[in-house]
């Protein structure tokens, strides 16, 4: 049976945190509400108090700084979608948001909500993991940082403790050279959640050598997976020396981490095969974006 809840509206981030602390486990944050509404209707969540944070304009921003891109948790997917001309990483994220849900839903849904929902099939999460992003979390005793990989703790479970909210996602930018990120997914129709997905972020220094590689694999485990062993295979390689075969080997190494399940959307075997292909293609995209020829 759908729960009845009371409604409260927070006027500052710290007030939202205080409300969460006061109301206890039944209190839920309402940002865009697009996942919350469904979960409430499907009785996956039974909130007793709903804390509406949509007034917290201070959490709605995209800032491009010299060493980082900062995305406020209340930034709507539509805003992220329109940020493409601010930075090429944002252009890549914008491309991802275009794959998500429908224009109507993207207008309401927020970046923070998408991450806090912690769906293993979420579209933005693998890219943030691959980019080595961090989550800025606000609690009663102040802010703390958690690596995006550690932010996801399981299906619909995050590193947020009871009285904490996500404030910002911070994407570090390399001090030397450029970073490019790409995302690939298997979907069925134009409006779908990913059956399996993969993202790669590759940094190339001014010397033309790959300095850092990050990967994120989605829908193949309860959390978004990374694969430092696979990344290590590529780091230190000159861009000019990258081959399709090399990327395929990296993807194969990464795919070994996958622990997919079978469900009505796809079988484990298909997911296992596809995650490797998605990652290989994402790696190929990033190399091409760096001007590499493969």
């Amino acid at each position: 049976m759908k729960s009845s809840f009371t409604y409260q509206r927070a006027t500052t981030p710290i007030e939202a945190v205080a409300m969460l602390a006061q109301k206890g486990a039944g209190a839920k944050i309402w940002a865009g509400g697009t996942d919350m509404t469904l979960h409430w209707q499907q009785e996956k969540t039974k909130p007793t108090v709903c804390i509406d944070i949509r007034d917290l304009k201070e959490l709605d921003y995209i800032k491009v700084e010299r060493d980082a891109i900062r995305i406020g948790a209340l930034t709507s997917l539509a805003t992220l979608e329109r940020s493409a001309d601010q930075h090429h990483v944002l252009a890549s994220l914008s491309k991802i948001t275009k794959l998500m849900a429908t224009p109507q839903t993207r207008t309401l849904a927020t970046v923070g909500g998408n991450l806090c929902n912690a769906s293993p099939a979420a579209d933005l999460s693998p890219a943030f993991v691959a980019l080595g992003a961090t989550a800025m979390i606000l609690g009663e005793s102040g802010s703390r940082e958690v690596a995006m990989f550690d932010f996801f703790q399981g299906v619909n479970k995050t590193a947020l403790n009871g009285a904490e909210i996500l404030e910002e996602v911070t994407i570090p930018l390399p001090s030397d050279g450029e970073i490019h990120v790409s995302y690939r997914r298997i979907d069925r129709t134009v409006v779908d959640i990913a059956l399996v997905n993969g993202s790669a972020a590759v940094s190339v220094g001014s010397d033309g050598v790959i300095s850092k590689v990050g990967v994120g694999l989605g829908a193949v485990a309860p959390i978004i997976l990374d694969a430092s062993d696979a990344s290590a295979e590529l780091e230190g390689t000159a861009l000019a020396d990258v081959t399709v075969g090399k990327l395929a080997a990296v993807a194969a190494t990464a795919a070994k981490h996958a622990k997919p399940i079978s469900d009505i959307r796809a079988s484990a075997g298909y997911r296992q095969d596809m995650v490797e292909i998605m990652l290989r293609r994402a790696l190929e995209d990033t190399i091409k974006n760096h001007g590499g020829t493969i």
């Binding site: 069925r188 129709t189 134009v190 409006v191 779908d192 959640i193 009505i264 959307r265």
Partner: peptide, 25 residues
């Protein structure tokens, strides 16, 4: 339509997992 083998119940009785082509498809 995907039916449960044990009960014959419909498992994808929703528009997320019952895939209709959209105009853009």
């Amino acid at each position: 339509m995907i039916f449960d083998e044990e009960t014959g119940a419909l498992k994808n009785g929703n528009l997320l997992d019952y895939k209709l082509l959209r105009c853009a498809d």
